[in-house]
Amino acid sequence: MAKLPIALQLFTLRNETKEDFLGTLKKVKELGYDGVEFAGFGGYEASELKSFLNDLDLKPFSSHVGLELLEDNAEEIIAYHKELGVETIVIPYLVPERRTAKEDYLKLAESLNLYGEKVKEAGMQLCYHNHDFEFEKYDGEYALDLIFSNTNPEFVQVELDTYWAEFAGISAVDYAAKYKGRLPLAHIKDLVTSPEKTFAEVGEGVLDIKAIAAAVEEAGAKRFIVEQDVCQRPALESVEISIRNFKEILGR
């Protein structure tokens, strides 16, 4: 298995970044992560944050940006990400009122094509990130497949959240293979089933992380992104456990 970089989705540390954005980035680097996937920028200018990341040698691989934010101010958002050096902008979520019918997903596909072309023109890539609700079927087709079958692969690619696929009862291994060549990023997360079905540190749950990592790499992923939406422990402790276990699983 190639040594793909491991990033952390900073949503996991949302409370920590709210208190001390730059200090939290330092801790992420100290724990051994190669880069980050942003979920906001703490109010910092792109040039200031870029300089800080360069000094840390922490890479700004990707960034989650709400679709509504792009609709309101695409030019400024794209320019900020380009200046920071982000490779991939990711649409992370579709609000409930925008996913009530098949037509909603077709409208989403139109928007993704539009913004994906703008992002591509700026030298970056747009991706769409799934949860479990995109595995609802419309006319026999998963909503997530509707999105990708109605978007241009050049403009819109896949950030597969392997946890949410498995949560929905879908094999992340099989689904990654379906989008081989169109899947540059994958969220690596784990799941426990008792006392309830919920999030766990990588390697602490029931998912076959080694097989999932191999599958997304085979599909062409360039980055592994660790995330834990909800932590039962202090979040910094959880992300430390995750990278330690994940590196052991990968044989690093």
Rank of each mutant, 00 (worst) to 15 (best):
P5D: 11
A7V: 08
Q9K: 07
Q9E: 03
Q9I: 07
T12R: 02
L13S: 10
L13I: 12
T17I: 15
F21C: 14
T24R: 01
L25K: 08
L25Q: 04
K26W: 02
K27Q: 15
V28W: 01
V28Q: 02
K29D: 05
D34L: 06
G35H: 06
V36G: 07
A39C: 15
G40P: 13
G43D: 05
Y44K: 10
Y44N: 07
L49T: 09
L49W: 04
L56V: 11
P60Q: 08
F61A: 14
H64C: 04
V65Y: 00
L69E: 10
E71A: 06
D72Q: 13
D72E: 12
I78S: 00
A79L: 08
A79G: 13
L84R: 11
L84K: 03
G85R: 01
V86A: 07
I89D: 03
V90S: 13
I91S: 11
L94Q: 11
L94P: 02
R99P: 08
E103N: 14
D104A: 11
A109E: 04
A109W: 10
A109D: 03
S111F: 04
L114P: 00
E117I: 04
K118C: 11
E121T: 07
G123A: 02
C127G: 12
Y128S: 10
H129E: 04
H131N: 14
H131G: 14
F133C: 04
F133S: 10
F135H: 10
D139K: 13
G140L: 01
G140F: 12
Y142I: 03
D145L: 02
F148N: 04
T151Y: 00
N152G: 06
Q157C: 07
V158S: 08
V158K: 01
D161F: 07
D161S: 11
Y163S: 07
E166G: 01
G169T: 09
I170N: 00
Y175Q: 06
L185Q: 05
L185E: 02
L185F: 15
H187N: 08
K189W: 05
V192Q: 08
T193Y: 11
T193A: 13
T198Y: 08
F199T: 02
I209Y: 08
K210P: 10
I212N: 13
A213M: 09
A215V: 05
A215K: 00
V216G: 11
E217V: 10
E218F: 09
G220W: 11
G220E: 08
F224G: 06
E237V: 15
E237K: 14
I243C: 04
I243P: 03
R244W: 01
E248Y: 05
G251S: 07
R252G: 13
